[in-house]
């Protein structure tokens, strides 16, 4: 194990890490509300909640559209920023932080974009 410190890295104070950390916690807080609501809506309210017509009618209403947009935004951010943190915990992440950051950001955009498609269709 080479316990060496990359001096360059240490002296560059970057804003990415602190912001990513604080948003990970904030998105976690927001998800608690949104995920609980989403789960409640689909599993607790009624047996018919998963019927096609009801699903489509929810997807067509503005209120739900906003709620789902927020949900898919925060969950995609939280999940792939979480994966980013995991990868940066490794020597691979230490060596290629830019690769990890860009791939995870891309994954976030794809997940958010793909999830939002559904909101645009209805």
């Amino acid at each position: 194990m080479a316990n060496e410190i990359n001096k360059e890295e240490m002296h560059t104070k970057r804003v990415l890490e602190p912001l990513a950390w604080i948003f990970q916690l904030i998105s976690g807080l927001i998800l608690t509300v949104l995920v609980t609501f989403h789960f409640y809506e689909t599993h607790f309210v009624s047996h018919e909640a998963m019927e096609y017509e009801l699903v489509v009618s929810r997807l067509s209403s503005l209120g739900y559209k906003i709620m789902y947009a927020l949900l898919v935004f925060f969950v995609a951010f939280h999940a792939f920023n979480g994966v980013r943190a995991i990868l940066l915990d490794t020597n691979f992440g230490a060596k290629y932080p830019q690769v990890v950051n860009s791939l995870c950001f891309l994954a976030f955009l794809i997940a958010f974009g793909y999830g939002s498609l559904l909101l645009l269709v209805f």
Binding site: E9, M10, H11, K13, E17, A85
Partner: peptide, 15 residues
């Protein structure tokens, strides 16, 4: 010191 512990090998690795 805050600048020194603020890199990606610093405090952000704590979970």
């Amino acid at each position: 010191r805050l600048a020194l512990v603020c890199g990606d090998n610093g405090v952000w690795r704590c979970h």
